[in-house]
Design a protein around this nucleic acid. Sequence first.
DNA 1: AAATATTTTTAGGTTAGTCTAAAAATAAAT
DNA 2: ATTTATTTTTAGACTAACCTAAAAATATTT
Lengths: 232, 232
Amino acid sequence: MFFKNRITRFNYLKMVSNTEENYLKAIFKISEKETAPASTNAISTEMHTSAASVSDMIKRLAEKDLVLYEKWKGVTLTKEGKKIATNLIRKHRLWEVFLVDKLNFSWDEIHPIAEELEHIKSTKLVQHLDEFLGFPKFDPHGDPIPDEHGNFTFRKQVQLSEFKKGKGIIIGVDEHSTQFLQYLDRLSLTLGTSIEIIEVIDYDGSVRININDNKEQIISNKVAKNLFVKPI
Amino acid sequence: MFFKNRITRFNYLKMVSNTEENYLKAIFKISEKETAPASTNAISTEMHTSAASVSDMIKRLAEKDLVLYEKWKGVTLTKEGKKIATNLIRKHRLWEVFLVDKLNFSWDEIHPIAEELEHIKSTKLVQHLDEFLGFPKFDPHGDPIPDEHGNFTFRKQVQLSEFKKGKGIIIGVDEHSTQFLQYLDRLSLTLGTSIEIIEVIDYDGSVRININDNKEQIISNKVAKNLFVKPI
DNA sequence: AAATATTTTTAGGTTAGTCTAAAAATAAAT
DNA sequence: ATTTATTTTTAGACTAACCTAAAAATATTT
């Protein structure tokens, strides 16, 4: 008798589907930005599903003790739910490093592939991959890779738009869209690039910068907001 | 409006689910061994699902022109169905090479992981992976890796049980179970090992062999049947 | 050739994950 | 403090992928 995808009386490790994993990740992301419990609406926006679907799913996750849920009051992850979410992020970012460092992908094309790879289940695979990549602490967008316990390396970083004068190094991006990343490539604003603020334009918040002590450039406030810089 | 997992009027590339892919692969495997169309029963055995589920699925695959199907007469893959099946096998085997060559897995633990990895969709990923691995032609079990058109490298190989006298090199295994592969490791019967037949025992078909001109060993007929050898 | 056995299909049900529309609860505005 | 707007939940339906049990077709025996 086969019990493929069927939970038996003897199966204590609860099965978590890819969809459930994605919901947990969405809730984690929302909780990163806000302290309040994640609202149904916020989750439905993040997941591109209807609020009704979210209500449904939340019940199932609560049933499995992956989230805490009180009707009308939003959801928070339990320890176990958070474990799954951070592990997903860990896998996602490790695979992104693999794609860029080993397979020569560029940073603007890796997200959707990592979105699939992050669901591969073997923990041994993650360990070996981590080792193979030299235990990286940040992914190709500068995001920290959590360790196996879900701890993120914290790094002081400032939005370029908040950076009033002086020099800095680009160490991360907030937006991950292909469009934005390709635009950054065109401006040679990649990770590790040094930037000096020449002038912040009051009118619209644009910033005139010098890139790598070499080329002057004006970038919009929107771009500046999406760039994380480490002052030097 | 989002059309995630929804086929729109404008979506000409038909979506094929992981499950559908697995059915196509199962049909391909059956067709490799027999010339007749794959029977419902054979597929249900391969897939560990009921015959009723297979009947159901076959109809859906026929609807999508991935198989040819006449009631009561079994199924054969269309060109498109075969394309998907061989591509899955290609991805499976490339990932197996990756796991062994780059991540130091052993040949007995890679199958289930590759079973998941083979469904990752990006074709660019497969191309880059292939290149990264040095365009391997065989996987860690000695199975040929089809090229992007689904062509397999053919290699003359003989079951050790059919090999009456002389020397040979182990170049493949028929069974892929953990148990069998670990047993082979214990006997140091890995790929590339040289073997000389000393004696075939009439009574039960066991074979007395000399491994790497070094150690004598008796192996059962069952083991011998699952070893592929290239005469030298 | 008839009877029996096997294989395949159909019929009818289940679950996960989605949806829309309507109802209920909460929040915001007058 | 009512009314209005927004958010969330419920109700009811759909599809993919599975199942069991029964019916229908094909194969095998006697």
